[in-house]
């Protein structure tokens, strides 16, 4: 040991050096392993998190609730103003609701007239946020649903209103959601109403930028941004947010999901679209006759 200087020093120092060198080598080998076989290492990470974080649940939940409670108490001070504000908003919402109901009926009628076949409705699993990534460099949260609940990698997650992120890393009872603001997040989006395609790329800021827009002349701040479903991994048509012009003249998205209060998240069960592998066979005598013989004999 380091404190035994003097007589034993000459024996322990070389052993100690070898031990430290070995320790550093093992850690570096672990890094290399992570670099070479990333999926396996990430599965290992998901397994460890799955073991470790839920065991802290009993402490995480009360502390989170207590801090939220303090925040709520602060808002009691302005309760009268808030009440007035909410009443005004409620009035506006009633008007919108009426309009929406009428539009929905009209839409249903038109769809019926046109015989449009829509996608089967998405079903979802709701999970509670257990913990966040704990690092200012990565934006992710941990949910209390996992492989046990049928969660799979790549599924979309919303907070009921807007897209929040996608599942990346599933443990037995937990799963990790990479938020749209994470630097590793890339989501194909469509900008309505012009239908321009782009990629929403997280960059650790609250307003992620949209890259690769075909024609920036056709979009303007205030346009709605929805997921496009390009590449087939993500359901199309989920609301992402609104386009804004950033201070650096890049087009950014103000996210519709409330990132300040991520409590319950919906994980949308999405099935991959059926792939059409080959063109249909030629319709001709060769294709018909064997079948006809088969039915005769």
């Amino acid at each position: 040991m380091a404190q035994d200087r003097g007589s034993t020093d000459s024996y322990t120092r070389p052993i100690r050096r070898i031990f430290i060198g070995g320790l550093v080598l093992v850690l570096f080998a672990l890094f290399l392993l992570w670099r070479i076989d990333s999926p396996r290492a990430e599965r290992f990470r998901a397994m460890l998190v799955d073991r470790f974080v839920p065991s802290m649940d009993w402490a995480l939940v009360p502390v989170t609730n207590a801090v939220d409670l303090v925040g709520d108490f602060q808002s009691y001070a302005r309760i009268r103003e808030q009440n007035q504000e909410l009443r005004r908003e409620l009035q506006q919402m009633r008007a919108w609701r009426e309009a929406a109901l009428q539009l929905e009926q009209e839409n249903a009628k038109l769809l019926d007239l046109n015989k449009v076949r829509l996608d089967p409705k998405l079903t979802f699993v709701t999970g509670v946020v257990l913990a966040d990534s704990g690092s200012p460099f990565r934006q992710s949260v941990l949910l209390n649903v996992g492989a046990r609940d049928g969660i799979q990698d790549g599924w979309a997650t919303t907070d009921g209103l807007g897209l929040v992120g996608r599942i990346s890393g599933v443990g037995q009872t937990t799963s990790r959601v990479i938020l749209l603001t994470d630097p590793g997040s890339r989501i194909p989006v469509t900008i309505q109403p012009t239908g321009q395609r782009g990629i929403l790329a997280g960059d650790n800021s609250a307003l992620p930028p949209v890259d690769f827009i075909e024609d920036t002349e056709q979009v303007r701040p205030g346009d709605r941004v929805v997921s496009s479903g390009d590449g087939g991994v993500f359901p199309a048509g989920l609301l992402v947010g609104q386009l804004v012009a950033g201070p650096d003249d890049r087009l950014r998205v103000r996210l519709a999901a409330d990132y300040e209060r991520l409590e319950f998240l919906r994980v949308l069960r999405s099935r991959p679209a059926e792939a059409i592998g080959a063109p249909g066979g030629l319709v001709g005598p060769d294709a018909i006759f064997p079948a006809a013989e088969g039915t005769d004999g």
């Binding site: 966040d132 800021s205 990132y259």
Partner: peptide, 18 residues
Amino acid sequence: DVFARLLPLDAGAGRFPG
């Protein structure tokens, strides 16, 4: 320290790293 960082209080981006 790990516990305090994992608390899901400010999941929003743009935090100042401590």
